[in-house]
Amino acid sequence: MNPYVVLRVVSKLLIPLIFLFGFYVHFHGEYSPGGGFSAGVVLGVGVILYALIFGMDAARKAVPPWWARIGMAMGAFIFAGVGFVSLFMGGNFLDYTALDPNRTYLGQHLGIVAVEFGVRMSVTAVIIAIFYAFAGRERTGDTAEG
């Protein structure tokens, strides 16, 4: 039903690579350029490309809108949660050194990974949610005045 065979085949090859690159950018963010914000955006672009090529219904089946709704809140919750965990383990709010009982930089590594996970989750979910909101809208109001 979709006449664009080349687009479909190429994007079928590209979409897994985009997701792989997104996770690479996320998990390699401490060692090379990248991190939660960039990775979240790249992963969101992957879903948007899928929706553009295969249609909104297929995309809604692959990534249901309620995932985006929950992910938005969960990401922000994880970030604040890490802050409160470090608070309860004896440090300041978002002081990751407190996450390690021996107070070495390992606590910082742990905290940064957790926080970046929250950022990535929130950004991906917000971008997917925004795209669904725009793409699911039908053009209306053509008969209105003006």
Partner: peptide
């Protein structure tokens, strides 16, 4: 902002 623009278009038609 774009969401607001879309809503304005739906209500006003321009």
């Amino acid at each position: 902002g774009l969401a607001l623009v879309v809503r304005i278009r739906e209500v006003y038609g321009t």
